[in-house]
Computed example of a mutant assay.
Amino acid sequence: MVRLSFWSAAALLLAPLTPAHAQKSPSAQPGENSTPAESTKSSETLVQVVVEGDQINYVTGDPANWPNELEATVAAPDNHKVLLENERVRVLEVTLGPGEVEPMHFHRWPSVLHILQADEWIDRDAAGNVIFDSRKGPPLSLPITMWKGPEAPHSPVNLSDSVEVRLIRVEIKDDTGDADLTPILDNRTRVIVEGIRSGDVSGIMALYGPGSLYAADNATLLSDPQAIEAFWVNVAASPAHDATLEVLRIERLGPDAFVEIQKYDVFDAAGERLFGGYASLLWRRVEGRWIIAADVSN
């Protein structure tokens, strides 16, 4: 069981690890019996969950893992009209016609929603599961204003044959609080541990961007992506299986960069400690995606 997170590994003792396989849940169609609190997982996206009564808040994964072609204004341009955009916010007018199925899309930033008009609708996640059904909860008194975090790929369906869904979405680009970083750091933990256990390090490599630097010890600095990948391939072949991580400090450098200082300990499958140390990581947000620009461990 992953306790918190995993970062550097230097004990390359060449022993295979057991792959971990994720399973998708069967798709749900409109009108099927599913509840707003239903929670399932797919191998591609952490499924959203409706919580907190009439507040439509979704628990999501890491926006860094969502494909750019599914960004709302790219995947569903007919439903999202940009009214204003600058470096701090983006204001969208969102419409969904009677009986319309909105193309699968995501919202990478937290938002304030002002729902002006709607009747009955459902929402599906990337696997087709119904994650919200307006018919199964208390009626919303419109217009209503609410806060939402980043939303993983989803596809709303307007069930009404006469009422258009209309709302204004104000997306907050420059939230500089540390709470918005929690999904980023939790996701990298899951991706790295799953990659090591399965032997497939492609997900780990997706955490890095062009020109990223990696130093696993005091003597070597890797900048070639193939060299970084070779390092992680060797780690995946070692007994490293689990880790604990204590984030000692997060220093925001602005809306698109932060430094993380951490203490880590790495364990084998039996829970025996292999090694540990400290690491300093520079994260940057490039085109809405958080990447590791530099990772230096001791």
Results as ranks from 00 to 15, higher is better:
R88H: 11
K136I: 02
G199D: 05
A236D: 02
V82H: 03
V247D: 10
T40C: 15
I204S: 01
R88I: 07
T176L: 07
A11M: 10
H241Y: 08
Q55W: 07
V201K: 09
R285A: 00
Q262H: 08
I261W: 15
Q29C: 00
I144N: 07
R188T: 08
N129A: 03
P77M: 08
A9D: 01
Q226C: 03
P16Y: 03
V101Q: 15
K41A: 14
S42H: 13
K41G: 13
D178R: 09
V50G: 12
N68D: 01
D180P: 01
W121C: 03
K81M: 02
E85P: 00
L274Y: 10
G199I: 06
P67A: 07
S27P: 01
R90D: 05
L46M: 14
T182S: 09
S162I: 09
P239S: 10
V51T: 15
S39E: 15
V2N: 05
I292G: 02
I228P: 02
F231C: 02
V94F: 10
P210F: 11
E272G: 07
A75F: 11
P210A: 11
W109V: 07
D265K: 15
D161F: 09
M205F: 02
P150K: 03
L181F: 11
L116H: 10
L12H: 11
K81L: 03
A11P: 00
S160L: 04
E52P: 00
D78N: 10
P26E: 06
S27H: 05
T95V: 14
N218T: 13
P30V: 04
N298I: 14
P139N: 08
L281P: 00
S155Y: 05
A236I: 07
V266E: 13
D161V: 07
V296P: 09
S111Y: 13
D180R: 12
A216D: 10
V266T: 10
I204E: 02
R3F: 03
P150D: 02
N187Q: 13
T176Y: 06
G277K: 06
N298Y: 12
E194R: 14
V165C: 00
T145G: 01
T45F: 15
A215P: 08
T95Y: 04
D265A: 15
R90C: 03
R252Y: 13
S43R: 15
